[in-house]
């Protein structure tokens, strides 16, 4: 069974200039963030979303999380439509957002997780134990009782992941999860992601890193200017994925060009 289904999904952001706009240069119009996208993710699989900035990766994740609603088409999560059964969807989905200001700065890591766990209906009896286990899994155990306003950006990144995992979601959404992590922490994190499908968790991951995508993904969807440029299964070969990506987007692989020129 497919855990996530996007059926002909379109998302448009409309720009409305201010009421009294004669002093500014703001213009109306719209941005078509996603255009008639259809894709599926099987249960317990890892789908990687690749694409340049502004291609629609984060919009896709936000649509699955119910943060956004589609203008056309349907987003189904474990069979529930995000439009008609958003509460059902939210119980299933964990979205790792690492924005440091999305935490409560004067609460510790444990207190932040405890707060979000309560909102996510994690049973009170097992909450403390589960929080401790999640902090251990994300490498934050030494910072358990540190106020999060003292955290580094890498620690915020880990706490964002811990927050998403705390409700034991059946679907995990990751938006560039290793952006602020050092290599060792990133490696630890990818090991954690690899374990999740074994526990029945479906993962949707937006990234720019070919090596990470090839290492953890089962399949890939390449987005370009809001459209699905290509999709396919992943073999684990980074160079193959790189070639697939640049062929799909029609962009020039400047890294390869640089390497060729140097040699």
């Amino acid at each position: 069974m497919d855990s996530i289904v996007l059926e002909s999904v379109s998302k448009i952001f409309r720009h409305r200039p201010a009421l009294f706009n004669w002093m500014g240069r703001e213009r109306g119009g719209e941005t078509r963030a996603l255009d008639n996208i259809s894709l599926t993710v099987g249960s317990g699989r890892v789908l990687v979303l690749l694409g340049p900035n502004g291609s629609g990766k984060t919009t896709t994740l936000k649509l699955v999380s119910t943060m956004l609603l589609p203008d056309a088409g349907h987003v189904l999560v474990e069979g529930a439509d995000t439009r008609t059964r958003p509460n059902q969807v939210r119980k299933q989905v964990g979205f790792a957002i690492a924005n440091e200001r999305s935490f409560f700065p004067r609460l510790s890591a444990r207190e932040n997780l405890d707060f979000f766990a309560a909102l996510d209906d994690v049973p009170r009896s097992s909450r403390a134990e589960w929080i401790q286990a999640t902090l251990e899994r994300t490498g934050l155990v030494e910072a358990t009782d540190t106020l999060v306003m003292k955290f580094s950006s890498g620690m915020y990144q880990r706490l964002g992941i811990a927050r998403a995992l705390i409700k034991q979601p059946s679907i995990l959404l990751l938006d560039e999860p290793t952006r602020s992590l050092d290599p060792a922490a990133a490696n630890h994190f990818w090991n954690l992601v690899r374990e999740l499908p074994e526990q029945g968790c479906t993962v949707m991951l937006a990234t720019h890193s070919f090596s990470e995508a090839a290492a953890v993904g089962d399949s890939v969807a390449v987005l370009h200017r809001g459209a699905l440029a290509a999709s396919g299964r992943l073999s684990g070969d980074v160079e193959e994925l790189r070639a697939f990506y640049f062929q799909a987007t029609g962009e020039m692989d400047e890294t390869m060009e640089l390497v060729t020129r140097r040699w």
Partner: peptide, 10 residues
């Protein structure tokens, strides 16, 4: 930025 996060809880 916590509004979006809070709106995705159960």
């Amino acid at each position: 930025g916590s509004l979006e996060v809070l709106m995705t809880t159960s």
